[in-house]
Computed example of a mutant assay.
Amino acid sequence: MEKPLISVIVPAYNVEKFIGKCIDNILRQSFKDFEVLLIDDGAKDSTPEICDACAKKDSRIKVYHKENGGLSDARNYGIDRMQGKYVTFIDSDDYVDSGYFEYLYGLITQEEDIQIAICGKKSVREDENASPDPETFHEIITGERAVQKMLCGHGSGHSAWGKLYSADLWKTVRYPKGKIYEDYATTYRVMALVDKAAWGNAAMYFYVQHIESIMHQKCSRRSLSLVDIADEETEFIVKKWPALKQEALARKVTSELKCLQNILNAKNEEFDDYKQKIVEDVRRHKGELLASKKVALKTKIKIIALLLGERTFGFIYNLNDGDKKYL
């Protein structure tokens, strides 16, 4: 049997409310040469039955039922079983435009040796049926330039989705099992293997935002692992691409300040080690950060506020971005 050109990996855990729409939009693609790997990660609701029913309707769908191991484990499970020359990831509560695969495939095949194609995304509400934003430009760039744009939050940023990868990029890279922020911990490592990338600004991936998402969860040592991941990424990038130090530090401080806000709002001494680490790191790099053109003005204001004191920082941060008040 001839292998498909594209493998689509869709981890699914307790998403009975969303998985049908996700799969329907995949099957409506104008590009037809693909396989769908639905990875039921031990779901407790009707997700497994929905996946099985969809597989009966279309032979391109393969369903795998496994014990719960988290998003990273489910993606890795799919990577180990994919057959395509290219691979893309879609989260089961998101959806894509009908031209999504065709667009990414057109980007990655416009020249030889392109290893990854990247497009834009739109953040949408759960009840929204979004339309794509058309392309106004596309370009072929180096891997280093693609990393620079990723660090600046362009396109689909660090997210696993919004990209079409050469399957060969995943020969040695896997997602960290049991951790959150798995995209942040992994995408830059994949990008380090890329020599040539294709970038288009059409927004064809629809990222569904949920109030109960990880970005709204309470502060915990697990959520503060973001600080450690930011450290790892920055060290890696500065070593491999010294010219990207400003972008790496700008991305890192954004993550650190968000975590510091959560720590202060939690008012829990358990997190004092992370608080001290963040404050010391910001003070150590304050000159570079405040002088950098890569650091946003509102981030610089937060840095200055932190240098004036924790209470000033907490007030300024919550005034602009917080959903709680630090008193």
Rank of each mutant, 00 (worst) to 15 (best):
T254F: 11
Q246D: 15
M191S: 09
V282W: 02
C219G: 02
K245M: 14
V279A: 04
W241Y: 14
H154P: 07
I180T: 10
D168T: 02
Y205T: 04
A250T: 08
L257M: 06
W199V: 01
L249Q: 11
K275E: 14
N268C: 10
S156F: 07
A230H: 03
Q276E: 14
Y165E: 04
V282R: 07
H216Q: 09
D272F: 10
A243G: 09
G162C: 08
K218F: 07
E288C: 11
L226P: 00
C219N: 06
N268I: 00
Y205C: 00
A266T: 02
Q209G: 04
Y175H: 07
E247D: 13
T187H: 11
N268V: 05
N262C: 15
G157Q: 09
I211G: 14
R221Y: 14
T254M: 12
K196T: 03
L169V: 01
Y175I: 00
W199C: 08
E270S: 12
L226M: 05
A202R: 08
T187P: 05
N268A: 04
V194S: 00
G178Y: 05
F236C: 03
A230K: 04
H285A: 09
Y175M: 00
E270N: 12
E269K: 11
E233N: 15
G155L: 13
K240L: 15
S156C: 15
K277S: 10
H285P: 04
L169W: 03
Y184G: 05
E256V: 05
A185N: 07
K163D: 09
K275V: 02
Q246W: 08
L260N: 01
V227N: 14
A266G: 03
S223P: 11
G157A: 09
V238P: 01
E280M: 07
K239D: 09
K277I: 05
H210G: 05
E233C: 13
F236G: 08
A202D: 10
A230E: 08
S156K: 02
G287E: 13
K177N: 12
C219K: 00
Q246E: 14
A243V: 11
K179Y: 14
K196W: 05
R221D: 14
E270T: 14
R189G: 00
Y188S: 00
F271I: 01
Q246R: 12
E247I: 12
Y207C: 12
G153Y: 02
A197C: 07
G153E: 03
V227P: 06
N265A: 09
E270K: 13
K245F: 10
W170Q: 01
A203L: 00
Q217K: 12
Y165G: 03
I278G: 08
K275Y: 07
V238A: 09
R174C: 07
P242Q: 10
F236H: 04
L260H: 00
Y205M: 01
C219F: 07
H210W: 08
C219Y: 05
A248T: 01
Y274H: 02
Y274R: 05
D273G: 09
G200V: 06
A167G: 08
R174A: 07
H154Y: 15
Y274T: 08
